[in-house]
Design a protein around this nucleic acid. Sequence first.
DNA 1: CAAAATTAATCAAACGATTGATTGAAATTG
DNA 2: CAATTTCAATCAATCGTTTGATTAATTTTG
Lengths: 217, 217
Amino acid sequence: MDKDKIDKKDHILDVAEKIFSDLGFDGASTRMISSEAGVNMAMLNYYFGSKEGLFLAVFERKISSFQTLLQNIGNDDSKSSWDKLDTCIENYVDRIIVNNCFQKLIHREMSLNIRWGLTDKITEFLMVNVNEIKKIFDEGIKNGSFNSDIDTAMITATIFGTKNYIINTPNISSLMFGHDIRDEKYLEEDLKPRFKNYMKRLLRAYLLVEQHDNTTV
Amino acid sequence: MDKDKIDKKDHILDVAEKIFSDLGFDGASTRMISSEAGVNMAMLNYYFGSKEGLFLAVFERKISSFQTLLQNIGNDDSKSSWDKLDTCIENYVDRIIVNNCFQKLIHREMSLNIRWGLTDKITEFLMVNVNEIKKIFDEGIKNGSFNSDIDTAMITATIFGTKNYIINTPNISSLMFGHDIRDEKYLEEDLKPRFKNYMKRLLRAYLLVEQHDNTTV
DNA sequence: CAAAATTAATCAAACGATTGATTGAAATTG
DNA sequence: CAATTTCAATCAATCGTTTGATTAATTTTG
């Protein structure tokens, strides 16, 4: 039935996502993926056209599963700019840190920038987050919540860059934090709240420079 | 002569560095490298043993060319903690931004983490920078220059992560900054000073944040 | 309804191309 | 001349992809 077909495609995509994440596009072979998924090699091309088509399909499924989650925080008029910023960061961290394998895959592809159809898709995808943050900053400056001479592009790079650095170079960050950051428990119970706490404080410090007298949050 | 041999090896390493950086380890073929370098394919194995040996050689040459530059800032007693921090960031940005292809290569390898001998080397290499920063922070806290309850691991991740994000996702950051950040002129004349300026201000804001707010961890 | 025709799904096998590596002879060197 | 360097040719292995055949389900037909 149609149901089974979708399930099977989904299963292939599950396996492909894992292997692509672990080994990269070139490092992962179609044989590996098909045998791991328990399907015939020809099925990959039958369903997805090519290896790159399979790669794209992995991304599109993942991206569409994200896209629904993050909308409309910036449009909630009941929240202050600070609340919006906090909510945005909370959501972002919760979402991405559990998908850190895929997260690595995304940034390897962006860094390589040789499969253009893919990098364009990823760019479009990532810019949704960037623009959401930017909107909050712009609004916060306009209504006086944030200092007016902040570098919004740079601070945005800091938010995403700090998290990426921790996730994408686990060998380094494990040494820095004194724990294996690939340990699920440590990640969830210690690192995640620590990151949120740190980022909030960092943003408060930067966005309020030269007006420390007002700490009403 | 020995001189010529070294020159030739160096030329091969130049070409290999470029191609590995552009295409990744798997994406770069030994044929491509040898033909681009104008040498016979067998020479790569003759000189470097294997493809992975060539890859390692590229790293070792690059790393040793860095290592000499950054020592002993932390040991200069004539400088305040703030001066040390500024100098450290200046040096770091100057060094890395011009080598951003290689920089990308490093982080792709760290993210992949499948060639262990290599990631161990890179880890060791990157930790030199991390430890240097950490030393400055620790010292600055001890002598009262910096606030005592700062998260040194996180702020270190912010310093490196912010720069990495800008360099490693040029498609994104170009959109964020409104210019193609791969443009050498823009990078040198605008982005570099902008980054330094931003990072100094960010650090001042965070490291001096007033303590009377109740951000108890 | 039952037989025939069509379609979709799956498979083993093989395709040509490319991979990293190796060989043994030739050329170059000191 | 002996040692080192370079080369064309070749190696087995693996790559992504394609093929033609087979099965199972669906649709069409009489």
